[in-house]
Write a protein that binds this DNA or RNA. Structure first.
Length: 583
DNA sequence: GCCGTTTTCGGCCCGACTGTTTTCAGTCG
């Protein structure tokens, strides 16, 4: 069996959907491929196993036809249908989808009429007037395409939530300050606390829409105006991100809030549930369906989002869970979890000091933790093999342990530092410190920091071997990914989760917004297996302790409650949790 | 291509904005 991951399957299905669009195939067939790609991305089981058991078609959104294609791809590493389809298109053509305003129809047009197959050729054809002469296009379209090509060069791609959160919060505050503004929300992927956002969506209810729109497009953040209408405006901020504003009447707010929060998949199911009750749902209202297929029920009054969920037979679904997956079944059966909140955290592990590559001293880190209202702080500087990060050898580590013990005496029980280490996992799965050194620590975080290019099988075996050491308390940043920067190394997450359950090892949710690793998609499986989570900021300075906010957002996306996260335990109870595996 | 509490055919979410048109197609979210 080839080592095909579910992400690779999703990419292939997504790519097929794009090519079918270019061939002007049936739109619903295209959507079926897109749905199946989403189903793969959010699938939390072991796809190899499901293929082996012949149960692919049991996955929601995957039918007989796509199950056969997925099975062929997983078993052989190849998909004949995909290869044949791909051969019909020049490879550079797909890059044109990254140009805002270029969709399948225009790409097809410039390709068929002008023979354009790359973004560079498109740019040239816009400049020399050939694009403007095409039927259905014109001067403005050509100019807009040029602007979009230019924008793409400047602002490629998506933004990490850590890069945009401060500006977004500031905009929310500013919008709330406008006269006659009633309700304000940042919707979209930002509200759902996705790890990256392509844009920001602001929603305002007011009786003075013009004033709000004017304020938005003239805000100091704005670099250029993309579109401005009566109810919808789009701008590009100086930071590079696109920000959209929707202005609605207050009675419409809960519907718009729900609609613009998404996800798209979540919205589709919401609308289907409305139709099943003889209603139609859009971003403005819940109303009677013009041609109902069922005997319509009276339409209830909706004042806030929770009313809408109730009307559709659901408990309120927190935004973080609205990814179009298991949230509906749980909301129907009243089994949605009470999600963890920032205030539940009592302390945190995996933080660095000037002893390795941190910017603040032990004392400064402790003071900052106290300032944040934490009861304890774990220090886990790098081990000696991470020489690029000034990793500590045994002598320096034991000196730091002694310093921590002395400081704890001064805190007098109100606050505590825990002495740990972020120990490198060596290439063969052995650890950077011997057992007798780790035995002197309160806890041990283990992480992979080198030799990323191993096979999935070897990397998984490497990590599992390290987890089997009884002094290892928790596994740091599982995949080593740096969002929008460096891909995850190959590792079998379900196998790691199984091993964590078997060995009693905690898995870290690294809250650094560049990482947010382990990914939120795996936490429901970890929770099901009884694996505990530690939300750790991986702070290299006092200010980075604030990363805990992003970690809590990701934990909420992973359906975690305070009971699933060890650092919700108070002093007096956390000690036993850290020591449990050593017995 | 998927799916089913009027089921194996005939549906499949829907509105705003732009640019090119003169009533609509394309794109986006």
């Amino acid at each position: 069996m080839a080592d095909i991951t579910k992400d690779q399957i999703a990419d292939v299905l997504e790519h097929i959907a794009i090519m079918l669009e270019l061939k002007s195939e049936n739109i619903f067939k295209i959507r079926a491929y897109q749905n199946a790609a989403r189903a793969m991305e959010t699938f939390s089981g072991n796809i190899q196993q499901v293929v082996g058991e012949g149960k692919v078609a049991e996955i929601d959104g995957v039918g007989k036809g796509l199950a056969e294609k997925i099975t062929e791809y997983v078993l052989t590493g190849n998909l004949a249908f995909y290869n044949i389809l791909k051969a019909e298109f020049p490879p550079g053509i797909f890059e044109m989808f990254d140009i805002s305003g270029m969709g399948p129809k225009k790409i097809q047009l410039v390709w068929q009429q002008l023979g354009i197959t790359t973004v560079a050729e498109l740019e040239a054809a816009c400049k020399d007037g050939r694009v403007a002469k095409l039927k259905g296009l014109g001067e403005k379209t050509a100019a807009n395409i040029l602007k979009a090509i230019d924008d793409r060069k400047k602002h490629a791609g998506r933004f990490r939530i850590g890069e945009i959160a401060a500006d977004a919060e500031r905009m929310l505050d500013d919008l709330r300050g406008i006269e006659d503004v009633i309700r304000v929300e940042a919707c979209g992927s930002f509200r759902r606390r996705r790890e990256t956002c392509g844009d920001l969506d602001f929603l305002v209810s007011t009786n003075a829409p013009d004033a709000v729109s004017q304020f938005f497009v003239k805000h100091e953040f704005v670099e250029s105006i993309i579109a401005q209408g009566a109810t919808k405006s789009s701008v590009r901020w100086k930071s590079g991100i696109q920000a959209d504003l929707r202005v609605v009447k207050d009675a419409e707010f809960p519907f718009a809030q729900n609609y613009f929060t998404g996800s798209k998949e979540h919205n589709i199911i919401m609308r289907q549930r409305a139709l099943a009750r003889g209603w139609t749902l859009n971003e403005y209202r819940l109303g009677p369906d013009a041609s109902p297929k069922v005997k319509p029920l009276p339409v209830p009054e909706i004042r806030q989002e929770a009313d809408l969920y109730r009307a559709l037979g659901l408990d309120y679904v927190e935004p973080e869970l609205r990814e179009g997956g298991a949230e509906f079944k749980a909301a129907e059966e009243h089994t949605l979890p009470r999600l963890i909140e920032r205030e539940n955290l009592r302390g945190t592990f995996h933080n660095h000091t000037t002893a390795s590559d941190g910017r603040n001293s032990l004392k400064e880190m402790a003071d900052a933790a106290i300032e944040l209202g934490l009861q304890y702080l774990g220090i886990a500087d790098h081990s000696k093999s991470s020489f690029q990060a000034h990793g500590l050898d045994e002598t320096r580590l034991l000196a730091q342990v002694a310093e921590i013990r002395a400081m704890n005496a001064d805190f007098g029980g109100a606050f505590r530092l825990f002495a740990g280490s972020e120990v490198d996992i060596m290439k063969d799965g052995s650890l950077d410190f011997p057992d007798e050194v780790m035995a002197q620590l309160d806890y041990v975080v283990i992480s992979v920091h080198n030799v990323f290019s191993m096979s999935e099988k070897d990397m998984t075996a490497r990590i599992i071997r390290a987890m089997e050491n009884k002094y290892v308390t928790m596994l740091g940043h599982l995949t080593g990914r740096l969002l929008l920067q460096r891909d995850a190394y190959a590792v079998d997450a379900p196998a790691i989760i199984e091993a964590a359950a078997a060995t009693g090892t905690i898995i870290e949710l690294n809250a650094n917004p560049r990482r947010l690793d382990m990914d939120w998609r795996w936490w429901p499986l970890a929770k099901e297996k009884g694996v505990k989570c530690a939300i750790n900021p991986d702070a290299h300075s006092t200010s980075q302790l604030q990363f805990l906010h992003f970690g809590v957002g990701t934990a909420r996306k992973g359906w975690l409650t305070r009971d699933d996260v060890v650092n919700c335990l108070p002093l007096g109870k956390i000690e036993a949790a850290l020591a449990a595996k050593r017995k």
